[in-house]
Design a protein around this nucleic acid. Structure first.
Lengths: 236, 236
DNA sequence: ATCAGTTCTAGTCAAAATGACTATAACTAG
DNA sequence: CTAGTTATAGTCATTTTGACTAGAACTGAT
């Protein structure tokens, strides 16, 4: 019985490197159809291993910041983006993720609003890709993107994450477009609206969106809390 | 509080310690009602900080094992248990989790079958607690247990994790007892059975459980795969 | 052997949710 | 003023859910 090894979390061990990465999602209008589609920004690797391949933005964890703060900071530094939603995705710690050393990556996923995404830096070393067409990425980042996409779809279908793609006020059609873009389906406007309006987190305002080409749609507001994750639990 | 900036930058270089912990769930008959209830094993801390308080079983990550392997190994070493299900819960990395140093804990949760749980070592330094009455734990382990409990309930309600508490063959009543114990409700046997039998992952066998006091119930088998987590995705 | 007690499970029925569709309201462009 | 388009209430058949009934199948006591 190893009761002496039970509480050795403080023992010094040949520690693997700890890194933080983030999968950032934003909706941008497709060039072809004009309808919104899912995009993610990637950064070009400027050194080995996987030099010149695209990879998720990431970096080390510094001593005086929490994991989520590290993700937010890194995301801002590499892409210039301020996300409206950040959630931990998974800790990836397989033995052969990097050919040169043992790296444990704690990966976050984030949503940014289209206004933010439009302002985003794009350069030689930062480029946006359609989430379903990223090509071959460095390390195990293809698997990470796939898993993040799966998680986003899940959260959208069962959670209340769609509103973080949008501003404070939005129309039912805008929410529907988010669902259609992420889940890649078409939804009946009438039935979709009925369901949204039966959820208590959606508040109807007296305002209407003016200036469109057709009948002005009513504006709504999201009043729910982001999530139940440990990082987000006690936010007042 | 560090007024010396040299001190701060010195500390910033030091990498945080990486630890693996596990929240282990098992069903055991309650002493009072005889009905199954949720229990978790905890280990006593034998040194500071939090000496003599109870804590989750855990330990360091060694260099030649994956995160999940580390969780399984550690769980076996500290409690003697072989789990039927293991899933990553969350990476906890708050700044002040441990008073003595910065620790990032990657926490797993696991289920063990009652036959396993009955064989489990119990000693001066390993003891089982009812999951909803663990008392004050070391570090942030109360919050971790709460979150694990929330996740277990969620996975039970929306996923297909109940069967890992049971053996290969089980009756509908046994599955119902798992749900009732974890979600702490009573469910209508007839309606519950109807729903289970409409899920394709549940296979009806021709066998019946003999030897009971009343009408012998039919035995079923679970044919689904554990989960869609990165760790469990490509298990053949 | 029969009956009382219990569990197992098919079945009934009303209420609620869902999916496909219709109709009307409200705007703009011409 | 009208044609075109979007917004949204409403209709109706189908499916799912929750509460309940009743018969089937066993054990143990009489």
């Amino acid at each position: 019985m190893y009761s002496s090894s039970a509480n050795v979390s403080e023992r010094a061990v040949a520690a693997p490197t700890l890194a933080i990465s983030t999968v950032i999602f934003a909706l941008r209008p497709s060039e072809s159809s004009g309808r919104p589609t899912l995009w993610i920004p990637l950064v070009r690797r400027i050194r080995e291993p996987f030099k010149d391949l695209w990879a998720l933005p990431g970096g080390p964890l510094t001593h005086n910041e929490s994991l989520q703060d590290a993700a937010s900071r890194n995301l801002r530094e590499t892409t210039g983006l301020a996300p409206s939603y950040v959630e931990q995705l998974y800790a990836f710690g397989g033995l052969h993720r990097s050919p040169t050393q043992r790296v444990v990556s704690i990966v976050y996923w984030a949503l940014v609003q289209p206004t933010e995404a439009a302002l985003a830096d794009e350069s030689e070393n930062v480029k946006w890709f359609r989430a379903d067409k990223v090509g071959e990425l460095a390390f195990d980042h293809n698997a990470i993107v796939d898993y993040a996409l799966w998680r986003l779809r899940n959260k959208l279908a069962y959670g209340s994450v769609a509103y973080h793609f949008l501003g404070e006020y939005f129309t039912l059609a805008e929410v529907r477009e988010v669902y259609e873009a992420v889940l890649d389906t078409r939804l009946d406007p009438a039935n979709f609206g009925r369901q949204l309006k039966s959820t208590p987190e959606i508040e109807e305002t007296g305002e209407y969106l003016q200036g469109g080409k057709h009948r002005p749609p009513r504006l709504y507001r999201f009043t729910g809390r982001p999530g139940l994750d440990p990082d987000n639990r006690s936010t007042p």
